[in-house]
Amino acid sequence: MHELSIAQNLLALIEDEMAKHDKATLVTVKVRHGRLSAVVPEALTMAFEVLTAETRLAGSTLVMEETPVVLRCRACGREFSPESPSAAFAPCPACGEELGHEVLSGRELYIEYLELE
């Protein structure tokens, strides 16, 4: 479960930001993850809850938001979101090209915002 190490890194970043801004309480953290980032939101949420239990971050809320996959066709340049969750095989709706598309979004994994007190 690599979500545990992701949660550990996430919490380290949060602690750094809290120290920079001299804040003691984390209210909410919003994480944006791409559909192709291989993150299981439920597992990350569980890891976050386990790692924050009985710490000063206990009771804070982790909000997860998924970014859809957007591809650019290598043949015609059209941008599109594939119907299947995989970008490995995604026919272009304009020209039918099936392989080699550029991934424009869908691999993200970042903190969108922190709500601190």
Results as ranks from 00 to 15, higher is better:
residue 1 M to D: 05
residue 2 H to M: 02
residue 3 E to V: 00
residue 5 S to F: 00
residue 5 S to V: 00
residue 6 I to N: 00
residue 8 Q to P: 03
residue 8 Q to C: 03
residue 10 L to N: 04
residue 10 L to F: 03
residue 10 L to Q: 02
residue 11 L to W: 05
residue 14 I to T: 06
residue 14 I to R: 01
residue 15 E to N: 11
residue 15 E to W: 05
residue 16 D to I: 00
residue 16 D to C: 00
residue 16 D to Y: 00
residue 16 D to S: 06
residue 17 E to C: 08
residue 18 M to N: 04
residue 18 M to A: 07
residue 19 A to N: 06
residue 19 A to R: 05
residue 19 A to H: 03
residue 19 A to D: 04
residue 21 H to N: 15
residue 21 H to D: 10
residue 22 D to N: 15
residue 23 K to N: 02
residue 25 T to Y: 04
residue 26 L to Q: 01
residue 28 T to P: 01
residue 30 K to E: 13
residue 32 R to I: 14
residue 32 R to A: 13
residue 32 R to C: 12
residue 34 G to Q: 04
residue 34 G to M: 10
residue 35 R to L: 15
residue 35 R to Q: 15
residue 36 L to M: 13
residue 37 S to F: 09
residue 37 S to I: 03
residue 37 S to D: 12
residue 38 A to G: 12
residue 38 A to N: 14
residue 40 V to L: 01
residue 40 V to H: 02
residue 42 E to P: 04
residue 42 E to Q: 10
residue 42 E to L: 06
residue 43 A to C: 09
residue 43 A to F: 01
residue 43 A to T: 01
residue 46 M to R: 03
residue 47 A to H: 01
residue 47 A to W: 00
residue 50 V to I: 13
residue 51 L to A: 04
residue 52 T to C: 05
residue 53 A to W: 01
residue 53 A to V: 01
residue 53 A to G: 07
residue 53 A to P: 08
residue 54 E to Y: 08
residue 55 T to I: 05
residue 56 R to L: 01
residue 56 R to T: 08
residue 56 R to C: 01
residue 58 A to W: 08
residue 59 G to L: 07
residue 61 T to W: 03
residue 62 L to M: 05
residue 64 M to H: 02
residue 67 T to S: 11
residue 68 P to S: 10
residue 68 P to M: 10
residue 70 V to F: 11
residue 72 R to Y: 09
residue 72 R to G: 03
residue 72 R to V: 05
residue 73 C to W: 06
residue 74 R to E: 15
residue 74 R to A: 15
residue 77 G to I: 09
residue 77 G to W: 10
residue 77 G to C: 08
residue 80 F to M: 07
residue 80 F to N: 06
residue 82 P to Y: 06
residue 82 P to N: 12
residue 83 E to M: 11
residue 83 E to S: 14
residue 85 P to S: 08
residue 85 P to M: 09
residue 85 P to R: 13
residue 85 P to H: 12
residue 86 S to D: 12
residue 87 A to L: 11
residue 89 F to D: 15
residue 90 A to L: 04
residue 90 A to I: 06
residue 90 A to F: 04
residue 90 A to S: 13
residue 91 P to S: 07
residue 91 P to I: 10
residue 92 C to N: 05
residue 94 A to M: 11
residue 96 G to W: 07
residue 96 G to T: 10
residue 97 E to T: 12
residue 99 L to F: 15
residue 101 H to K: 05
residue 101 H to W: 02
residue 102 E to Y: 09
residue 104 L to Y: 06
residue 107 R to K: 15
residue 107 R to P: 02
residue 107 R to C: 07
residue 109 L to P: 03
residue 110 Y to P: 03
residue 110 Y to E: 11
residue 112 E to A: 13
residue 113 Y to E: 11
residue 113 Y to K: 09
residue 115 E to N: 11
residue 117 E to N: 13
